[in-house]
Design a protein around this nucleic acid. Structure first.
Lengths: 123, 123
DNA sequence: GTCCTTGTTCAAAATTCATTGAACAATTGA
DNA sequence: TCAATTGTTCAATGAATTTTGAACAAGGAC
């Protein structure tokens, strides 16, 4: 990891809650949850959630809180949930949040394009 | 209920998360959880957490988010967790949060006085 | 009635947060 | 090399949040 991530044992619940207490960031987590079996996704795939600049800000918030892990891949940034760390620190918490977050309209909108073949997403 | 409380079905997860994403309010919830078998507690019993004025503000935030129920009892305000509503809306969520919140140092400090006989709390 | 307790209201101040646009850096691909 | 893609940095702005003290209101105890 090139970017700073908090150690598992120093992830604070109130910081995690504050990080998730924002519609945009909760939607980011919802998207990550729906792509968990694919190991996460790349920042750019969250383009419909907010502006590019703003996305950098929100993803950083989630990373600093210990909610997500960000790994540089060339010019891209691979983002994924810190599932194991959150589960060990706050058992049951992530699943209970995700159950609701995956159903957010913003998550549908963001992931819809990705599920379409080629680049016909905006057709 | 004299004070306005959101209906169960209109409790929003991101609002609840934002409400809990604050050390003071998380401590309030921790206190309520430790007194759940007594049906909650009264505002004044949270005196060590913050100023009286500020407590009014934080309790209102929790109430408006749907996390707690506030019932006037004479000049006092009885506060309790909306356990059934939260459980039905976000299964497992409250328990996962409470597990950590009840162990906050601020919760110990706040409840310590209450567990002592008479008013010898500050001895 | 007169205190005392409990909590609220209000306006102000301080702080923090979210959002934006312009300019930039790094990598990829032709 | 040149251009396109991907994301960051920075400064600024507007909005929301948190905190405070003074004054107030409603009940309870006496």
């Amino acid at each position: 990891m090139t970017l700073p991530h908090p150690d598992t044992d120093q992830i604070s619940l109130s910081t995690v809650l504050a990080a998730l207490g924002d519609e945009t960031r909760l939607a980011i987590v919802g998207c990550l949850a729906r792509r968990e079996d694919m190991g996460g996704l790349v920042c750019g795939q969250l383009g419909t959630l907010c502006s590019k600049t703003n996305l950098t800000y929100h993803v950083a918030k989630l990373r600093e809180a210990g909610v997500v892990s960000v790994r540089p891949e060339g010019t891209k940034r691979h983002v994924s949930l810190r599932r194991a760390d959150l589960d060990s620190r706050f058992p049951g918490f992530l699943d209970s949040v995700i159950t609701t977050a995956v159903d957010m309209p913003a998550v549908d909108r963001a992931l819809h394009k990705l599920s379409l073949p080629e680049d016909l997403g905006d057709a």
